[in-house]
Design a protein around this nucleic acid. Structure first.
Lengths: 162, 162
DNA sequence: GACAATATCTCGCTCAGCGAGATTCTTGTT
DNA sequence: AACAAGAATCTCGCTGAGCGAGATATTGTC
C-alpha cells in the first residue's frame, strides 16, 4: 500500500478510493451487527430501511415495490414481509382502491428501531462535518454528490449488458 | 432513495449522511451485479476482495483469517474456499512451517477479475477527484478519514455489549 | 361476460451457512 | 520420548433464505 511515498500527488485519488471502500465495509458490518442483535437478517434490515424511506417521503410501499427494491423474487418478498410482520415491525393492509394490492405500514416501534440504528451514525458524521468550515463542507458535499452520480452511472452502464 | 421535495434537511450534515448511504447502497449493488455475472455469491466477492487485499499487502491469507474477516463459521469458510477453488480463483497450499495451516494463493485470473471489477470504479472516483484542486482534495481526504475513524469507533462500541 | 394483465401468495426445491465433532499437526510438560 | 492440551482445518447433518413455477384474486378492456 505505502510504496515509499512515490507519486504522492495523484495517489490522493487512490487513497480516497480505499477510504470510501473502507467506510462502506464498516457500514455494512454495522448493519449486520444491528441485524443479528434484533433477530433480523441483513435482507430484513434493508427492507426496513426501504420501508422507512417510503414512510418518510410519504410514498406508500407495497410488496411489489419492496421486492423490486431489494432485487427479490415475489416468493422471497412474501417471506421477508412475513418475517417482519411476525416481529410486529410491519402490518399488511389491503388497498381499498385496488384490492389486489397490499399496503405495508411500518409500526411505530420499527421507526424507533430505525433511529436507534441510524441515530448514532448520523451524529458521528455530523460531528465530523462540524470540524470543517462552510466552504469545505460545500466541497465535501460536491465531492460526494459527484461520486454518487458517477457510481450510479457506472452501475446503470453495467445493467446494460444484462 | 431520492430526496425529492424534502427540503427540511437543509443541514449539510444530513445531506452528507444521505449521500454516503446512497453511495454505499450503489457500491453494494455493483458488487451484487458483479457476483451474479461471474457465478459468484456476494460472500464470494467479499472473500475475493479480502484475498486480493492480502496479496496486495504481502500478508499470507489462510482459511482462519478469511473466515474471521467475513464473519463466517469454519464450516462456512471451507465452503467459500471450495467454491473459489472449484472456479480456479484460488489454490490451497499447505504451509511448510506449520503444517496445520493452509495458505490461500489467488490465481492470476482472479487478480484480473478483481481489476475488471474495481478498475472502472477507481477510474470514476479519480476523475471526480480531478475536478478539485490540491487543497480541496486534502479536505476531502481528511473528511473521509474522519468518517472512517468515527464509523469504525462506532462499530467497535457496538461490539462491546455483545 | 370472456379475457388479458396485474399483484400477491403457495409449494417444492436448492444451497449457503451453522453447530457439533472428527482429523491432523504443533507445542509444552513431564 | 510420550502424552496432553491446543490450534487449524475439514466433514456431516440440519435449518432456513430465496428461486422457479404455478395458483388465486382483482382490475380494466373488448
Amino acid at each position: 500500500m505505502q510504496e515509499t511515498g512515490e507519486v504522492q500527488e495523484q495517489d490522493a485519488g487512490m487513497r480516497v478510493v480505499h477510504l470510501l471502500r473502507a467506510v462502506t465495509v464498516e457500514l455494512d458490518r454495522i448493519g449486520e451487527r444491528f441485524a443479528a442483535r434484533h433477530a433480523l437478517h441483513p435482507t430484513d434490515v434493508r427492507a426496513l430501511i426501504c420501508l422507512l424511506d417510503a414512510a418518510r417521503t410519504g410514498t406508500s410501499a407495497t410488496p411489489g415495490t419492496l421486492g423490486a427494491h431489494l432485487g427479490l423474487n415475489s416468493a422471497g418478498t412474501t417471506a421477508v414481509i412475513d418475517r417482519l410482520e411476525r416481529l410486529g415491525h410491519v402490518r399488511r393492509e389491503r388497498d381499498t382502491r385496488d384490492r389486489r394490492r397490499v399496503l405495508l405500514r411500518v409500526d411505530e416501534g420499527a421507526v424507533a428501531l430505525g433511529w436507534s440504528f441510524f441515530g448514532p451514525l448520523i451524529h458521528e458524521v455530523v460531528a465530523v462535518m462540524g470540524r470543517f468550515d462552510a466552504a469545505d463542507q460545500a466541497t465535501i458535499e460536491r465531492f460526494l454528490a459527484g461520486v454518487h452520480e458517477a457510481v450510479t452511472r457506472e452501475r446503470a452502464g453495467r445493467e446494460q449488458h444484462l
